[in-house]
Design a binder for these strands. Structure first.
Lengths: 217, 217
DNA sequence: TGTATTTTGTGAATCACTTCACAAAAGAAT
DNA sequence: ATTCTTTTGTGAAGTGATTCACAAAATACA
């Protein structure tokens, strides 16, 4: 799978690949056969050079004078992002957010299949939530392994998050998405992604509070 | 409010301010009076130099040889982030995610008050959702203005998002948090924050798919 | 009081990311 | 066929963010 000389790919580039992927889905629907870096950049408010640099990391699929073939490019980016695979996902904590994510249609569309739910609330355990039984968190390690879960989404309260995280890591899971507002410690070989909505809102709050400053020197 | 020579503050710095703020809340609870950049960095997996650089943008509140006073620093960062104010928030789209966010306790704690809900589903309009009446999206412009809403959270389907966004902008709102998986166009003076969970999950998917490559040259 | 230790605050150096700019390749037009 | 136009792919330049490294300031302790 390795490509050419292989420099480090930045997180921003990976993030933009997802953006390109979505744009290409739209372009395909609109009937485009090819798309230039210029037009793709315009639509996503980026620069053409950046689009080309990003794509060039993974080889050269463009045609000079014409642009990129929409279908092929979409397929290739999907492959790079691992969207051609199915991923087994478990969710720990079936509260407001966890519950909402279970029914989030976009996830299933991209190949993220929620296979297991866990909670520690005796009233929830055993009950059926949108077709999935809620399991006792006590059995998490065994079940994650049995069902070959690759990604775990943590939506438990902050105080419980590190303990859950440790158990998940112990079960051998290598990718965790954390919604708890606390910074978790994981070994180097585990990918941890923090999704903290308060932090994002605080960014808005900062921007509104400091609309004047922000620049100059 | 302007501070000293005032260089540009990067988004990463603002993001880390939120992280420091949370860490300081914890430190205060644990009874710390002061904290060094070294220890703060260790806890949040950053470097001491970065902590000091970030904080130095806003003045110097540390004491050499001792560190930063926890209480004061927390208060100061809160002020910088605008957390001492209350923000009026409206939410458009009361589906799975919108509904979950309404009851997300963290928001209220940080001073984000959900004042209005909107939807276009006749079955939902007029009903009471967790103590808040759901309004017809048709009346959005007027109501946003009447209630002096400063922040709008958009959780409608992708296809409807740009239209909603335009109306919100027209109502004079300057901060939008978008959960729809589509890139919205807003004027320069409006802060737009995209919170796209599929993109985040795709990042995990990428990492799992490409654990080997990632570096060297 | 003096010396050793800690830790800040910050220019300078380094590293990372983005944009520029242009040769090369392909298509379109005449 | 030849010329003109478009657009890629990519080194080089430029910009921005992080880390280094050290003087200065404060404490701790003898």
């Amino acid at each position: 799978m390795a490509k050419k000389s292989m420099r480090k790919i930045s997180n921003s580039t990976i993030h933009r690949l997802s953006i390109y992927y979505r744009a290409l889905l739209g372009l395909e629907r609109e009937g485009y056969e090819t798309i230039s870096s210029k037009e793709l950049a315009r639509r996503e408010k980026l620069t053409p050079a950046q689009v080309r640099k990003d794509l060039s990391f993974f080889g050269s699929f463009g045609t000079r004078g014409l642009g990129y073939p929409v279908k092929e490019l979409k397929a290739r980016i999907g492959e790079i992002l691992g969207l051609n695979k199915l991923w087994n996902v478990a969710m720990v904590g079936v509260g407001n957010i966890g519950s909402a994510l279970v029914s989030y249609k976009e996830f299933a569309k991209q190949g993220f299949i929620v296979k297991l739910l866990f909670d520690n609330d005796q009233r929830k355990i055993g009950s059926n939530h949108k077709g999935i039984i809620i399991n006792d968190i006590a059995s998490i390690k065994q079940m994650l392994q049995e069902q070959e879960i690759q990604i775990v989404i943590v939506t438990v309260p902050a105080a419980a998050a590190q303990k859950v995280c440790d158990e998940v890591v112990e079960a051998g899971v290598k990718a965790i998405m954390n919604f708890a507002p606390v910074s978790l410690k994981v070994p180097d070989d585990v990918v941890l992604l923090n999704e903290n909505m308060s932090i994002e809102l605080e960014h808005l709050s900062f921007s509104l509070t400091n609309r004047n400053m922000v620049l100059s020197d």
